[in-house]
Structures are given as structure tokens and as C-alpha cells.
Write a protein that binds this DNA or RNA. Structure first.
Length: 926
RNA sequence: GCAGGGGUCGCCAAGCCUGGCCAAAGGCGCCGGACUUAAGAUCCGGUCCCGAAGGGGUUCCGGGGUUCAAAUCCCCGCCCCUGCACCA
């Protein structure tokens, strides 16, 4: 029973292409614009792409069958550094790269060694991607393809940046990066030997004063500044007195801090001139003034002070920091310097630090293990539940977590404090072996995502958008709140030249935010051979914003007025994007930028309408990896299992938000399933009989019920549920046959429906069957079936029979009887009446239903019995049915099933009749 | 740390929002049967424990609670995964 899927697929792909049926042009139908985040082309399309792209592909086909005018297309992302880096690695014949690309990406070695420039790589992999899309049967409009390195597209990006700049959203500033001083370069995760998962943490330096000298105390808890009773230094470490020049503030000050800290701050916009070097002990017992409280405090020695973190100067807050508390006790100074409570925390005394030191039985500052635990506990409790007390001046009464940011900003604004960046882990090392530092990059260009007004617009957009799954609405709101300014230019890589300063290239996440708009017009640019230099800012203003004088623009750009008008109209027709689909990794970056940039540039009617976020893909429980594998290229799936199999499997392997695990054995099963479907269709088409029977109506009802459910599922992107429904169809067919159904007319309707519903998932095999059914035209363009009559009673009747069969079977098995005669007794009338009352009061709860029943005096007499009955009726969800009629109609069927005589409501054998309940008849077997 | 997702009867995985057709769908695996020369495929049945009458018992990470009724709602705790940006 080998079916040549490959041949079928090629046949239909060719026909689709010849007929150009997926090319989209505006007309008077309702439009549907769906997009997926385009792929980055530093390799072949793999199983992850297959999932993320099959979701919109299936949806595009579904909507097309709902008679929508669907725009569905793709571009390629090529800007940035990875492709550049790949070209260099290939040129160098890097062993690991060669291995990965020949074995995982399946690039023949002779081809691979040729890919020594970014341009060649883009050309090669874009061809491969196109081949993969085509062989997977994607219904794309191929006239709209482009890459982000096309000169025409770059003009679009330049226009976008002008729009942002006009609104004041492109700004210059500095920002911290991980940096290797030895390589003199920022380092990315994969450049690191150690400390890959480190993040950059902001320490606050509170500048204590000693005359005109500052001692910057580094802290993560600036809110405790009100409770400082002394400062700590490490007596054995090296400290320096320095002249500090701040390059940003252009100011000069004298500081004392550890030598190590100075060496770090060199990278953070500061220049130093050493005036004096000494050991920490020299500072001991000097006094310094807290700039916030003006309180003078002594400087004391402590060994726990590390100079690898912070400045080597630490504020001491014994009420809330276990280290400080125990160190003061060690020195026997606690009484002398005092202890100031600041934060009230439920479950702790005035001095939480004291509580935990006692709780963990900490005896000295050398007990680091317990001190860490204690510190964590106090910090957590105080941050989450703590409220600042009256010692905290204007911040009194606020919760720590609410006021912390404001307090910090206030301190900085007033000049009492500065920011110092540190890694979250102690050691971060570059591949070259050198220790990395946090460097503050100067004169960097940013997109000002921190802008409050901008954020408000983004929130407004999110409020109106649809999200699949729904909880992403909340997540996007949070993303918008957390968004900081993003550096938008780089020195290296492919991409658009930054229009406002030479030497920069627009960073690749920033050049891919509003490109779906470009899809709507790129076909005109290609068709009319429009050159990059013709694509002026004024032209884009007109097309996307309706601004400017078209006559003028036509003249200056030398583009036909009509063409410009068409572009404008096509944009208006298809925009906004109805759904944007992506895997969840793009949520905190691309998808959020997508929203931001749309609301900044376009009027409200063109803001995004919806986002679909899908989970990841694993293969036999292994994460995908472009460099280590597994990868499973789309082309390999298509080759080994067939396009339809791959599509159906991946689209239904998991619900959208869940991660999907690809299992080869299940893929194999899917293949068998599709083969069965095809053979079944063939069998039905070849049928000669046309026997009508009672069960026909049941099957029709089931078909209609499934059509209805299918549409509900598909409209909500519940592809897995829609897929499972297809299997239910086959189960229905089994029951239909078992009940003696064999009506060709009905079965043709059955297979026709199934073909239509499967077509978005498995279009090739469906086209083939559609043709076998003698239908005109492509199933891809056919209309979905309407929902016909659903006869609830006949559905319930069959369900009743199924349940009865189950019951009888169970008795036979447990009692180990071989039945000769089966007696079936339906419930007495009064029980059916109760059942009816229950069904009429579905919306009420049990107690209320009981009240309703007890209105009748006859029932009141049977109080106890009724309450039991009521529970059972609810539990088995019984509805009133003419059971006796169903039984007698199907007596023959039951007799055949059990090979025994069936007696309906006959002599009460074994005193069983009294057990009968609506939809659960009593049974006696002999 | 912050945020999000998750822990279900061998495995995978529904259900949870909207409590009661939930001993809990479906698939895989396993066991038995039909078909077949055989294999595969397909079909029928079984797969927590007990049971010679459709029943009973014990289950949905652990512990409390709400309710006539909890896998589902609430509280506390444990464990796992992902993201935290300048990188596509």
C-alpha cells in the first residue's frame, strides 16, 4: 500500500505555481494579513522554523477557504554580524563550522567552502529556504520576497529612522556592556570562557564625605542609607586616594577607594590620577559624614569586605545587615556606634539582622555560609514585605519594593550618589583568558524605548490587541514597562548605514520592526524595476502616512503616479497585520519592538491586531542547536516523511503555547494515518452500494457537529484540537459501519468534508482526493463546508447505546457469564420526571434544583431516594430520552453484538428493575 | 533576585480558566483476540487495586482550607524549565 506522496506533492506544487493561486492582490473581499517573523539566514530552515511557520501557513490556507483575501509571504533576515562571522569561519576552514554545516545543515562540502562572503551565504541559504518552503507546500506570494540587505529595503529603514528621529526617539548616550580589555571588544555569550550567565548589576555608590574627600560606599540597598552607623574597610587591602575626572559630568573630585575598584571604574567614564597609595588600615578610626543624614560615623575594619566587588568601602547597617551586625559584635562596638532600625517587616523584630544572626547561631564574621543565608533571608523579607519607618524621612511609610527606584534616583539627582556597574558573578572571563569588565560605551545611539509617552501608546495598542495564548497581553504590558533604551547601531556587520552619523550600521533587531508594511509594496518595486535612489523619504511618507503631494513626488522620484497610488492603496488595503506569529524567544525583543515602532510611526488604524506566540521544538527531547545539533532541516523532513506528514504532525504535535517534542516514531504513525485516509477515500469513491439506514442521519449529525467544532478551534488557533478532531472522524466511521451503515452518498459527504477540513494541514493529498472526487478547481480555493443540521436526540441515542453496551460488557466480564438472555429495564416514569426537572434547571446548583423538585408532594415522600438519584443524574449527565423506543429499534443490533436474546422491560428477574435510572437502565443477564 | 511557564495512572499528553458525564480523553508501549501462509497494516478488547452483576477502594508534587462535591478554587511549601537585552 505504498502511496507515492512525493509524486503527488510535486504534481500539485507545480499546478499551484502555474496557476499563481497564492498571489495576493487587493479586491473587494475582506482581507487577512498574516506574517511570521522572518528567518535569519545563517543556516538552513530547521524543525523550529517548520513549527513557527506552519502555524500561519495552515491559518492562511484556512482563511483562504473562508473566502478571505489572504496576504501571506516571507522575507529574509540577513543583517547583523553572524553571517559575517560565518563567512570568516568558512574562509578560515574552521573545523567545527565545517562539521556543523556539512553534517547538520547538510551543505555539500564543495558548496560550503565556496561560501566565503556574506553575499554568497545569503544567496545560498535563501535559495535553500525557498526550496524548503516550496517543497513543504507553503502557500506564499513569491513576488514579495526580499532580504534586509537589499538596497531598496535599506531606503525603507532610513525612512523609518527619520520618522523616529523626528519624534525625538533616536538619542545619544552611554550604556554598559561586557567588555574584554585585552581584545578591546564587547563580548557576547559565546565569546565567554566563564560567567556566561552573568548579568550586569547596578551598584549605588553613596559618597560619604571626609572634608573635601569622598568615600564612595557601594551598595545594592541604598534605602538603608538612613541607618548607617559606621563604614567598613578591609585593613589588609590596597586603597588609593585619587583625583577623579568624570568624562560625562566633566567634573573633578578627590576619592578614596580600593585600587581594584579604581581599575574597574577606568572603564566607566572615569579617569584617575593617583595621589596616594596605602593599606586600608590607615583609614580605620577616621570619621566620615553621611551625605543624606549628615551624621558623622566612624570607619572600622572588617575582613568580610571584598575588594573584588564594589569599592572596598561598605556602609554598615547593623539593624538590617547580618554581616554588619556580627562584625560590630566581634569588635565589641555595637553599643558605641548604635543601631538604627529602618524597615518594619512582619515576623521580625525591630532588628531583623539580629534575629537571623541568632536564628542561624552565627558566632563570628568568619561563618560565611550562614551569613550568606541570613543575608539572603533578610534581604528578601525586607524587599518584599518591608515598610520604611519614620527614620527614613520623606520615604517613611512606603514599601521597600515600591520606593526603591525613586529613592535611588533622588540620591543620584541630588549628587549624593552615583552608579557603578558590576557583574552579577565574581569572575567573567573572555575566551582569550583575560578577565572581563563592565565598560560604559560612550556616544552610542539609542532608540528611546524608555520614553513615557511612547510607552503609553504601546500599552494602548496592547490593550486592543488579541493574543494567543491570552496571557501574553499581560506579559507584553510588563515588557513595555521594563523596556529601557536600546543601542541601535553597531560598528560591524551587514545592514543599513545609520543616516545621522558616519561609521555606524543600524543594528539588526532595529531594522526589522515594521517590515510587514514593506511586504505590501515590494511587489511594485520589483515589477516596475524601481531603484533605491527613487525611494525617497517623501515617497514613503505618502505611501504609509498619506502625506505630501503626489504630483510632486511622482516628479521627483520619477515613478508613475498610478504606481504610487497603487502602493498607497495596497498598503491601506492589507494593513494592519491581523496576526503576527513567532516562537516565544522573540517576545522580549522583536515582538515588543514591533509594537513600539508601529505605534510610533503609523496612525492607530494600522497598529498590529494580534500576536501568536508558540512554544519551542525539541527532537526526541533534545534542544535544537544550529552548531551542535539536532537540527532536522525542513528539507529532510519533507524528503523522509513527505510534506503533508511533516506539516500535519508539527501543526498538531502540541497546543500553540506548549513546547513540542518531535518523535520519529510518531512521525511514522502520522504517515500511516495519511495513507489510511487516502485509501479510505479511494475505497469510498469506488463503492457500488448505496444502502440507506437509520444510522446515516447519525453520521451526518456527527459530521456537522465536527464542522462546527473545527471552525471554533481553527478560529482560535487551536490546531491540535482541530487535528485530533480528524481522528474522531475515523472513530465515527468505525461506529457507523458497526451499526450497519453503508450509504455511499453519506460516505462521499463524509470524505468530502474530511478532505476540506484537512486541506489547510495536508494540502497535497487533499488536492489529489479532491480531484478523485471529481471536483472542479483546487481544494486550496474551495469553500469550507457549512454547518448543517445536528440532531441532538439521535446523537444522545447512540451515546446511550454505547454506554449500555459498556455496562453489559462489564457485567459479563465481572460475573464471568456467557449470556443467553439479557433483560433490560428502563427507569420508572417518576425518575424520568426528576431527570427532566434537572435538565430544565441546568443553570442552577444542586441545592436549588433539590428545592425545585421538592415542590411536588409526590417527590417529597421519597426525599432520601431522590437526593441519591439527583446526584447520579448529575454525575452521568442524563437527559430525558425515549429509551424504550431506542431499545426496541436497536434490539436486533444488540442481539447481534452479544449473541443473546434481548428482553426489554419484561419480567423483573433478580429484582433488578428498581436500579434503573434515566440513561442507565437496569440489566439482568442469564 | 525579577518575570513567565510547568509538576496528572509505565512514557508522552488532555483536563484546570467556567468544581459535578473524572478512575480521569488520546497516542505510544505492553498483553490478549480477529484477519493473514507469514510479517506489516487494520479491526476488537484489556492495561491503579479488589470484585462471580454494572460495584467498592486508593489516586492527579507535598501539606492545609473552602464546598453537598476538588486534578480543577484559596493558602503554605518543595521541585523543574525559560527569559532578564544590545544578541539574532
Amino acid at each position: 500500500m505504498n502511496i507515492n506522496f512525493k509524486k503527488i506533492e510535486e504534481k500539485w506544487q507545480k499546478r499551484w505555481e502555474e496557476a499563481e493561486i497564492f498571489n495576493a492582490n487587493p479586491d473587494n473581499r475582506e482581507k487577512f494579513f498574516i506574517t511570521a517573523a522572518f528567518p535569519y539566514l545563517n543556516g538552513v530552515l530547521h524543525a523550529g522554523h517548520l513549527r513557527t511557520f506552519t502555524i500561519p501557513e495552515v491559518m492562511a490556507r484556512y482563511q483562504r477557504m473562508k473566502d478571505k483575501n489572504v496576504l501571506w509571504t516571507f522575507g529574509y533576515h540577513v543583517t547583523g554580524t553572524p553571517i559575517l562571522g560565518l563567512a570568516e569561519l568558512i574562509k578560515k576552514k574552521d573545523e567545527k563550522t565545517i562539521w556543523a554545516y556539512t553534517n547538520l545543515h547538510k551543505v555539500p562540502k564543495e558548496d560550503l567552502l565556496n561560501l566565503t562572503t556574506p553575499e554568497k551565504i545569503v544567496e545560498y541559504f535563501s535559495k535553500k529556504a525557498e526550496e524548503a518552503f516550496k517543497k513543504a507546500g507553503f502557500s506564499l506570494d513569491w513576488r514579495r520576497q526580499f532580504t534586509t540587505n537589499d538596497e531598496e529595503f535599506k531606503k525603507f529603514i532610513i525612512w523609518q529612522f527619520h520618522k523616529l528621529k523626528e519624534k525625538g526617539l533616536i538619542v545619544k548616550g552611554s550604556h554598559p556592556v561586557r567588555y574584554c580589555p585585552s581584545c578591546d571588544n564587547p563580548v557576547e555569550d559565546h565569546d565567554l570562557l566563564e560567567g556566561e550567565d552573568s548579568t550586569i548589576v547596578e551598584y549605588i555608590l553613596i559618597k560619604f564625605k571626609m572634608g573635601d574627600i569622598y568615600l564612595p560606599a557601594a551598595t545594592l540597598r541604598p534605602e538603608t542609607v538612613f541607618g548607617v552607623v559606621n563604614l567598613w574597610v578591609n585593613p589588609n587591602e590596597d586603597y588609593v586616594k585619587v583625583k577623579v575626572y568624570d568624562e560625562e559630568k566633566k567634573s573633578e573630585e578627590i576619592w578614596i577607594l580600593s585600587k581594584k575598584a579604581m581599575n574597574k571604574l577606568i572603564h566607566q567614564n572615569k579617569k584617575f590620577e593617583i595621589l596616594e597609595e596605602f593599606k586600608g588600615e590607615k583609614l580605620v578610626n577616621l570619621r566620615a559624614i553621611n551625605p543624606i543624614t549628615n551624621k558623622e560615623v566612624p570607619i572600622l575594619p572588617a575582613e568580610f569586605v571584598k575588594t573584588t566587588v564594589g569599592t572596598g568601602i561598605v556602609m554598615s547597617v547593623p539593624a538590617h545587615a547580618p554581616y554588619d551586625y556580627i562584625a560590630l559584635k566581634d569588635l565589641n562596638k555595637l553599643d558605641e556606634v548604635g543601631i538604627i532600625p529602618l524597615i518594619k517587616v512582619p515576623g521580625y523584630s525591630e532588628y531583623p539582622a539580629k534575629d537571623v544572626v541568632e536564628k542561624y547561631k552565627i558566632k563570628s564574621q568568619k561563618d560565611v555560609e550562614n551569613l550568606e543565608k541570613a543575608t539572603k533571608e533578610v534581604y528578601k523579607a525586607e524587599f518584599h514585605k518591608g515598610v520604611l519607618n519614620e527614620n527614613c524621612k520623606e520615604y517613611a511609610g512606603y514599601k521597600v519594593r515600591e520606593i526603591k527606584d525613586k529613592l535611588t534616583n533622588d540620591l543620584i539627582k541630588k549628587g549624593y550618589a552615583e552608579v557603578m556597574y558590576e557583574f552579577s558573578v565574581e569572575r567573567v572571563r573572555c575566551r582569550c583568558g583575560a578577565e572581563c569588565v563592565v565598560k560604559l560605551v560612550k556616544d552610542q545611539w539609542f532608540i528611546k524605548y524608555s520614553d513615557k509617552k511612547w510607552k503609553e501608546l504601546a500599552h494602548k495598542c496592547v490593550d486592543r490587541m488579541n493574543f494567543i495564548p491570552e496571557n501574553y497581553k499581560k506579559i507584553f504590558h510588563e515588557m513595555i514597562d521594563w523596556m529601557k533604551d536600546k543601542a541601535c547601531v553597531r560598528r560591524r556587520g551587514l545592514g543599513t548605514k545609520f543616516p545621522f552619523e558616519d561609521g555606524w550600521i543600524i543594528e539588526s533587531l532595529s531594522d526589522s520592526t515594521i517590515y510587514p508594511a514593506y511586504y505590501t509594496i515590494v511587489k511594485y518595486i520589483k515589477e516596475h524595476n524601481i531603484k533605491a535612489e527613487q525611494l525617497t523619504n517623501e515617497l514613503f511618507d505618502y505611501i504609509f502616512l498619506g502625506k505630501g503631494d503626489i504630483e510632486e513626488i511622482a516628479k521627483t522620484t520619477n515613478i508613475d503616479k498610478e504606481v504610487i497610488e497603487n502602493m498607497r492603496n495596497e498598503f491601506i488595503y492589507y494593513y494592519p497585520v491581523d496576526w503576527r506569529c513567532s516562537a516565544k524567544d522573540l517576545v522580549p525583543n522583536h515582538l515588543t519592538f514591533y509594537i513600539f515602532n508601529h505605534v510610533a510611526i503609523f496612525p492607530e488604524e494600522f497598529w498590529p491586531r494580534g500576536i501568536v506566540v508558540n512554544g519551542y521544538v525539541t527532537i526526541e527531547n533534545q534542544k535544537l542547536s544550529k552548531s551542535k545539533g539536532p537540527l532536522l532541516p525542513i528539507l529532510e523532513v519533507v524528503e523522509k516523511y513527505g510534506a503533508d506528514v511533516g506539516r500535519f504532525y508539527i501543526a498538531t504535535a502540541a497546543e500553540i503555547p506548549q513546547d513540542a517534542d518531535i518523535k520519529f516514531s510518531t512521525l511514522e504513525k502520522t504517515k500511516q494515518f495519511l495513507e489510511r485516509f487516502y485509501l479510505l477515500a479511494k475505497e469510498i469513491i469506488d463503492m457500488k452500494d448505496n444502502k440507506e439506514s437509520y444510522i446515516d442521519k447519525w453520521l451526518l449529525s456527527r459530521i456537522n457537529l465536527h464542522i462546527k467544532e473545527y471552525k471554533n478551534y481553527m478560529d482560535n488557533f487551536e490546531l491540535r484540537k482541530a487535528g485530533i478532531l480528524i481522528y474522531e472522524f475515523l472513530e465515527d466511521l468505525r461506529w457507523y459501519k458497526r451499526r450497519g451503515g453503508n450509504n455511499k452518498e453519506i460516505l462521499i459527504k463524509f470524505i468530502e468534508t474530511l478532505t476540506l477540513l484537512l486541506a489547510p494541514f495536508t494540502p497535497h493529498i487533499c488536492e489529489e482526493i479532491w480531484e478523485m472526487l471529481g471536483k472542479e478547481g483546487f481544494v486550496s480555493l474551495a469553500k469550507l463546508p457549512e454547518v448543517g443540521e445536528i440532531d441532538e436526540e439521535i446523537l444522545k441515542g447512540e451515546e446511550y447505546l454505547k454506554r449500555l453496551i459498556e455496562d453489559i460488557k462489564e457485567i459479563i466480564e465481572v460475573a464471568k457469564i456467557k449470556p443467553n438472555k439479557i433483560y433490560i429495564y428502563t427507569a420508572e416514569d417518576w425518575k424520568c420526571e426528576v431527570c427532566e426537572i434537572v435538565n430544565k434547571n441546568r443553570d442552577k446548583n444542586v441545592r436549588e434544583i433539590m428545592k425545585e423538585i421538592m415542590k411536588d408532594e409526590r417527590f417529597r415522600k421519597k426525599g432520601k431516594e431522590i437526593s441519591k438519584l439527583l446526584n447520579t443524574i448529575i454525575k452521568i449527565n442524563a437527559i430525558p430520552l425515549d429509551e424504550e423506543k431506542i431499545l426496541s429499534q436497536n434490539k436486533e443490533f444488540l442481539e447481534k453484538e452479544f449473541n443473546a436474546e434481548i428482553v426489554i422491560n419484561g419480567e423483573d428477574k433478580g429484582n433488578k428493575k428498581r436500579f434503573a435510572i434515566p440513561m442507565k437502565p437496569a440489566i439482568y443477564i442469564e
